[in-house]
Design a protein around this nucleic acid. Structure first.
Length: 813
RNA sequence: GCCCAGGUGGUGGAACUGGUAGACACGUUGGACUUAAAAUCCAAUGGAGGUUAAACUCCGUGUGGGUUCGAUUCCCACCCUGGGCACCA
């Protein structure tokens, strides 16, 4: 009896699969294409993280299962390689990033091969290679030509230590995500992509796409749609009008003052030539500086100043209301000016601080509390509060007034229905080296011109000198110092011109990679029309929940834009998205600083890829994530050895056992669990099946035994592909188990013949009785009443009997 | 503060639309095999009480209420953990 040698077996089959081109579907002729996508990993120098393997295993099980269900599954893999993380690493070890990437790529792919996933290695995508990034540049130019790429001076997050611009998501609580130093802000001209043009559609499509509610809610919150009213006001004594957005128009009658954002262009006009001018402008300067140093705290940093100006005749009421400037108002949300009332907690606080008069119009039913509200002793705004004004709405609940009051406002002609989004345009400029150069040329005469397509790619120059890569704090990227790169001719007039020296946000690279996969062999187009039509949209996308918001939103945006430009004919890239949980260790995130990062190679070497795969999936629900523990890993290894031993052992033939029912029941359960990506319970069901075989080992006839192992091999195939293949081949079946169809179960055979029915008295379990499936209430009741245990508790008169077929009979006494 | 996810034995976790809580596994304990250990195999394993041993009884899914014949599952309030967002008018 040989021990199962996972190293030998796994290597053997991996080679065979490669030889047979098992994982390379025919891109042009596949009959039932199925695009099984997983999030490609970030090319980190540390190599494959076990968290990557966790994600990929879950996705691979799905893909393999779909293949057995008859699909031509395309399961590609690639690397997301541009970015600050790699660049910093290379700088740290003093090596050229290009070389580091070459080396890590090789290592990464080697590691990935060992995991036994059915990747199509003939079609990988690496974002940092010219043959890919030339098309990312193409995408940029399309954006530009269609008016979706533009430059604007913007306040951006700035990390003084990395000396670079950071995106909002790279700033965590005012601290740089990478180096943990406090961030500031800086005003710079940047390239933006107009994702806000798509806010409505991005939000609307969430209604129908087949994603989990949780993920949709995340997207919805990020887009932040709100519906309200725009009011128009005139400034007294000046020829200035402005609009104010109000998402809670119910309380518009409570407004007693206005606040303008410090950065707002109107500020200067408001105070020009007045005695307030100096005060106000110095206040604005001070606030701007303050904003540079740290983030605002509502309690500590609520500051404001009166402009000396008033809104004239507020909504026809005859009253003039003061206009203030305050630190907490955003210039880029709504119109940058807000109307303030007693029924906004922040306005209320601000008014108290500066002793600005307030006027409550909404009161609670509770009289005592209402009195306090009237005296402005407490802040109040609840859905069941009662409005006093406008008089047409006197006595109406706050939450019920919303719709009607908007109509009333429109009818009266004092405001217009309006929609606002929290979503901001996407700043894609990065002042770094290791990224995709933005393919734009600035000519003194012709302004910004895109690089003509025939000149693609704009190659990222190879900078050898470390000092030339390091950010210098000028705010410009390292490319700016490369004269040969910068100096160029204007594509329009042929005159002297300069190249853009910023590179693109790596999120751009990953926003369209799935489109490239089917067409990696095509050098002349980013994605072939026919192939795209055949394989996309992606049938199933599996990835971490942490990318739920940005990456998914960006790729949805790009897809919509491409649809509008008629390159593709669908507008949602992922038919289904499944977000898996996080793999942690000892209750904490794995991180290098904690020293608890698991190297999957070591475990694959020791126990085999199958054992690691099964183990990872057995830790807990795939949606929930799991906590890595070594001892359990051992158990999974034992399970595989045990299965092997059972297969090898050829004992006496038994007298026969009812195998069909058990086989069908198991197939049914495993299938049901895989369908809902509940891999941990699917594995448990397979274990039960093996345990059942073990307990009855001596009873099986030869062909029954064969049936059991055949089924086992098929059920294991998606989860533990190597041992499944080995069992399959040991049974003498034709290669390969992965080309078999998933076993079908007979509905009639999955029912239990005999069932255990619980007997309850007043909801408490008193006994269980055995009976045939589908037994009638009378029969069950008769059997139950015979039981001594039941009789003991059935001393009083039975008032009611509740019967659930095959499950329970309950007596109420 | 807001939004999501979650809280079940010593541990990871099961439990379909309210119907026998603890599947499956790890660990622990005892036993078999062995000169011994490892490996393997067998058995027990939520807690408390009870018995020579059983039988049996009670308590148990974060806390407190509620609905129900019956609640891990539904409703209300609260506490805790993890993740995300954070002055969005």
């Amino acid at each position: 009896m040989d021990k199962y040698d996972h190293t030998k077996v796994e290597k053997k089959w991996q080679e065979k699969w490669k030889q047979e081109k098992m994982n390379q579907p025919d891109m042009d002729n596949a009959k039932k294409p199925y695009f099984n996508l997983m999030m490609f990993p970030y090319l980190s120098a540390e190599g494959l993280h076990v968290g990557n393997m966790y994600a990929f295993t879950g996705s691979d099980i799905w893909g393999r299962y779909q293949r057995m269900k008859g699909f031509d599954v395309f399961e590609p893999m690639g690397l997301d390689g541009f970015g600050i993380h790699s660049e910093n690493y290379a700088i740290k070890i003093g090596e050229h990033i290009g070389e580091v990437s070459k080396r890590t790529e090789k290592h990464f792919y080697e590691q990935l091969r060992m995991t036994g996933n059915q990747f199509d290695w003939s079609r990988t995508v690496e974002t940092y290679k010219p043959e890919y990034y030339k098309w990312t540049q193409w995408l940029f130019v399309q954006m530009f030509k269609n008016g979706l790429a533009y430059r604007k001076k913007a306040t951006v997050n700035w990390c003084p230590s990395c000396k670079t611009v950071l995106s909002d998501e790279q700033v965590e609580n005012g601290v740089c995500e990478r180096c943990k130093s406090e961030t500031t802000t800086k005003e710079m001209k940047q390239w933006f992509w107009r994702i806000t043009d798509y806010a409505e559609r991005l939000n609307k499509n969430l209604e129908w796409i087949n994603w989990s509610e949780e993920v949709k809610i995340g997207q919805r919150n990020w887009i932040g749609r709100s519906e309200g009213v725009n009011f128009k006001h005139k400034v007294k004594d000046l020829d200035i009008e402005f609009e104010v957005y109000d998402s809670i128009p119910q309380t518009h009658m409570a407004q007693t003052f206005f606040i303008v954002a410090p950065e707002h262009a109107i500020v200067e006009k408001l105070v020009a030539g007045t005695d307030k001018e100096e005060d106000v402008l110095s206040f604005v300067e001070r606030i701007k500086k303050k904003k540079l140093s740290h983030r605002f705290d509502i309690d500590k940093d609520m500051e404001g100043v009166f402009t000396g100006r008033y809104v004239e005749n507020y909504l026809g009421s005859g009253k003039d209301l003061p206009i203030w400037i305050a630190s907490f108002v955003f210039v880029d949300y709504g119109t940058g000016i807000i109307g303030c009332s007693a029924h906004d907690e922040r306005d209320f606080k601000f008014a108290k601080k500066y002793e600005i008069p307030l006027k409550p119009v909404l009161f609670p039913k509770d009289k005592k509390l209402a009195e306090k509200v009237r005296k402005l002793e407490v802040f109040y705004r609840e859905p069941d509060g009662i409005l006093e004004e406008p008089k047409e709405f006197n006595g109406v609940r706050w939450d019920e007034a919303r719709g009607p009051i908007i109509e009333y406002i429109e009818k009266k002609g004092i405001g217009k229905r309006a929609v606002n989004y929290k979503l901001r345009d996407w700043c894609i400029s990065r002042q770094r080296y290791w990224g995709d150069p933005i393919p734009m040329i600035q000519c003194k005469k012709c302004e910004w011109q895109p690089v003509p397509e025939e000149d693609f790619p704009v190659l990222l120059p190879e900078i050898r000198e470390l000092k030339d890569i390091l950010p210098d704090g000028s705010g410009k990227g390292p490319l700016a110092k490369q004269e040969n790169f910068v100096k160029t001719k204007c594509p329009k007039c042929g005159g002297e011109a300069k190249r853009e020296t910023d590179v693109m946000d790596p999120f751009v690279d990953s926003s369209w990679y799935f489109l490239r996969y089917p067409s990696t062999d095509m050098g002349n187009v980013p994605f072939d029309k026919k192939r795209t039509k055949k394989w996309l949209p992606v049938d199933m996308y599996i990835g971490g929940k942490e990318h739920t918001v940005l990456h998914l939103l960006y790729s949805r945006f790009i897809t919509m834009a491409l649809k509008d430009w008629e390159y593709i004919d669908f507008e949602e890239p992922y038919e289904r998205f499944f977000g898996h949980g996080l793999l942690i260790k000892g209750g904490a995130k794995m991180s290098k600083s904690k020293g608890n990062v698991i190297n999957p190679d070591e475990y694959i070497g020791k126990y085999g890829a199958d054992a690691v795969r099964m183990y990872l999936m057995f830790l807990g629900g795939f949606e929930q994530g799991g906590d890595w523990r070594d001892t359990v890993m051992m158990g999974m290894h034992k399970f595989i050895q045990r299965v092997w031993k059972l297969l090898e052992r050829k004992g006496e033939e038994g007298t026969g056992i009812a195998v069909r029912s058990m086989i069908h029941k198991t197939v049914f359960k495993v299938e049901r669990d895989i369908e809902r990506l509940s891999y941990n319970t699917a594995i448990a069901k397979i274990m039960e099946f093996v345990n059942w075989y073990r307990e009855n080992e001596d009873d099986f006839k030869k062909d029954e035994r064969r049936e059991v192992f055949k089924t086992l091999s098929l059920l294991l195939a998606p989860i533990a592909p190597h041992i499944a293949e080995e069992i399959w081949s040991q049974l003498g079946s034709d290669f390969s188990v992965h080309q078999q169809t998933w076993p079908e179960y007979d509905k009639n055979l999955i029912m239990e013949e005999e069932v255990e029915i619980a007997v309850q008295i007043n909801g408490k379990l008193r006994d269980t009785i055995k009976g045939q499936f589908g037994m009638s209430q009378e029969d069950v009741e008769r059997l139950a009443r015979v039981s001594v245990k039941v009789q003991k508790h059935l001393t009083k008169k039975v008032k009611r009997v509740i019967f659930v077929e095959n499950k329970i009979i309950s007596f109420v006494v």
